[in-house]
Simulated assay, not measured.
Amino acid sequence: MSRPDAASLRQAENTGGLNPITTLSVLDDTTRANIVGTIVGHPKGAPSKKELEYYNPSVAASTLTDHLSRLEEAGLIEPIERDREGLERGQPYRFFQLTDAARKLFDRNNLFEPDAYRELFAEVEKTDEIEAAEAVDRPYEQN
């Protein structure tokens, strides 16, 4: 394995420690790119798995789990959990958000612009169950 050159190290440093080429190659899969788009467009920036399943209906739940794992391993997303106290049965408590390093990388490369994704997201018709899932407070929300 070769040592990274100075330019590669500076580039990784400027993107929160993520190697842009390696990290962005994870997004060469349309489904993973759509999942990231769903996270970026989500009104609270952190959808639950239930919401991700709803907004990506062609993806089986087990396949979604695999894609979430790949995105997490790449340093693009991170799970966050809220206290289950006060939640009704079936309400989500685990959510997925972009890492700060991923947002820096995307901003630096003009990818996944939040306003554009939020506009698309706002046009999607939602069931009562999904609206209830969206209403659940996240441990911390991104703006």
Score class of each variant (00 low, 15 high):
E85P: 02
Q97N: 02
A74Y: 02
G86M: 00
G45Y: 12
E119V: 15
D66G: 09
F112P: 01
L27S: 10
F112I: 01
G16N: 05
N56H: 02
N14D: 15
Y117I: 05
A116C: 06
A61R: 14
E73D: 13
V59F: 09
L98F: 00
P114F: 09
P20C: 03
V26Y: 03
T63Y: 08
D115L: 14
L87S: 00
A33K: 08
S62F: 03
F121V: 08
G37D: 15
A61H: 13
T31S: 08
L68G: 07
E85T: 11
R84M: 15
K50Q: 04
R103V: 12
D115P: 14
P139H: 08
L105P: 15
L76T: 00
K126G: 02
S8V: 11
L27T: 06
D128I: 13
N110L: 14
F95G: 14
L64F: 01
G37P: 08
N110F: 14
A122H: 12
Y55Q: 13
P114D: 07
E123P: 01
R89I: 11
T99N: 01
E78F: 06
E85R: 05
L52N: 06
Y55S: 00
S25K: 12
L18W: 03
T22R: 11
L76M: 03
I35L: 02
I77E: 10
F112T: 03
D100M: 11
A101F: 05
L105V: 15
I130Q: 05
E13W: 14
Q142N: 13
F96K: 03
V124Q: 11
Y54L: 00
E125S: 14
I39Y: 04
L111P: 03
Y117C: 00
E81Y: 10
E129T: 04
R108M: 05
I80M: 08
R70L: 09
S8I: 00
T30N: 05
R10F: 11
L9M: 11
A61S: 14
I21G: 13
L87T: 01
R10S: 10
T63I: 05
G17N: 14
T22D: 09
P57K: 11
E113N: 15
T22Y: 07
V40D: 12
E125G: 07
K44M: 10
S62G: 02
E131W: 07
L105S: 06
A133E: 04
N34K: 15
T15M: 09
E131D: 10
M1Y: 11
A101W: 08
E129G: 07
E51F: 07
P79Q: 06
S8L: 06
G75N: 01
I35S: 00
Q11A: 07
A7Q: 15
L71E: 04
L98M: 04
L27K: 01
D28C: 14
T15I: 04
L76G: 00
E129L: 04
F112W: 07
E73Q: 13
G17R: 05
L98K: 00
Y55T: 11
R82H: 10
E141K: 14
S48W: 00
A116G: 13
L120E: 14
R84V: 08
K49M: 06
Y55N: 07
P139A: 07
N14F: 07
E81V: 05
N110V: 10
D128F: 04
I21V: 10
L27R: 12
G75H: 06
S58L: 10
F106Q: 10
P139Q: 08
V124G: 07
R108D: 13
